[in-house]
């Protein structure tokens, strides 16, 4: 019986089908290689002895395996500092942003709220214009946020887009649940913390992921506001500095001398850059495959709007 089924299936697959599928699968494999190769190549480079990498010919596998590059990168005070600030802004920024966004979303999801419409419009308007780089920069200066950690957190607490996504979700929670809690004497703050937040976990997870990835990947606000303040630069910014240095050395980065006197013979800008690239993207690479469905959900949530 299985044989008969197989034969039927084979009969339905024409020559064209086979040709198409072969082409398609081959194409997809090539595509996956193109997507992954740059990354795998950097991993190989970061695990290969820097003096050996200069000879070229490192593709997917290190030739002279070593942890030296990682040891060097993790021994740099500026990089450890950068990792610390990156982690701090990701954790603190995400927590604050999610809590505040959810709170406003809860308020504007309430039918009875007097300012429901006006508050919603005030936030949505911000999707269509912005003051621009220089006025924003001067505002941060006037508010004395430049040179502080909070310049990474406060200006981005609420994004209108995330607010709308959360509001839509909260509006979908059955009203009767709120009503019951109110009859039992719960105020809005209690309803929000004890009922709405736990019920909104799926959307909170999705939005948190986007906020966290955004925070981790951010380098521009560091460049703008804290580039002269070494204790507050992030990992991405440190990588950018390395990148700009190697880029200006005319692409011929092998001949450039490594910074740090003792390390001059064992690491090169090329190996440092490769190692830092891996360190800067590793957290995302590690969590991404497991949380992919939440990311995709966020994309479709946004599209529905």
């Amino acid at each position: 019986m299985i044989l008969a089924k197989k034969r039927k299936k084979n009969l339905m697959r024409t020559k064209e089908d086979v040709l198409f599928d072969t082409f398609n699968v081959t194409f997809m494999i090539l595509l996956s290689i193109v997507m992954l190769y740059p990354f795998l190549n950097q991993i190989a480079l970061s695990l290969n002895a820097a003096t050996d990498s200069v000879k070229g010919g490192i593709y997917l596998w290190p030739r002279e395996f070593t942890w030296r590059n990682y040891e060097y990168v993790f021994s740099q005070a500026s990089i450890m500092q950068g990792i610390f600030v990156s982690v701090a802004r990701t954790v603190i920024g995400t927590l604050i942003s999610i809590l505040c966004t959810a709170m406003v979303a809860y308020a504007i999801a309430q039918e009875k709220f007097v300012f429901k419409r006006s508050v919603t419009i005030i936030f949505i308007m911000t999707m269509y214009f912005n003051g621009g780089l220089i006025p924003t920069y001067l505002l941060m200066r006037d508010l004395q946020l430049i040179g502080t950690f909070w310049v990474y957190i406060i200006p981005g607490i609420i994004s209108a887009f995330n607010l709308i996504i959360m509001r839509s979700f909260i509006e979908g929670i059955p009203k009767s649940i709120f009503e019951q809690a109110r009859i039992d004497g719960a105020g809005d703050f209690r309803v929000f913390f004890q009922i709405v937040l736990p019920l909104s976990l799926p959307v909170l997870a999705t939005v948190s992921l986007f906020v966290a990835v955004g925070q981790w990947n951010q380098w521009f606000d560091v460049f703008l506001y804290n580039s002269s303040n070494e204790s507050l630069t992030t990992l991405q910014y440190e990588l950018m500095k390395v990148l700009q240095n190697t880029a200006t050395s005319n692409g011929d980065w092998n001949s450039a001398q490594a910074s740090g006197e003792h390390a001059a013979n064992t690491v090169t800008p090329k190996s440092i850059q490769a190692t830092m690239t891996i360190v800067a993207s590793l957290p995302i690479i590690c969590i991404y495959p497991f949380l992919q469905k939440y990311f995709v959900k966020g994309m479709t949530l946004g599209a529905v709007k």
Binding site: L31, M35, L36, P38, Q236, G251, F295, V296
Partner: peptide, 26 residues
């Protein structure tokens, strides 16, 4: 295939630029 092709979207442009300039170097 989907998982692999979505991945670069989540890397920062700094990382992407580092990868690209490495691919395009001499």
């Amino acid at each position: 295939v989907q998982t692999i092709s979505y991945l670069p979207h989540f890397l920062s442009w700094v990382v992407a630029a580092a990868l690209i300039s490495s691919l395009l170097s001499m």
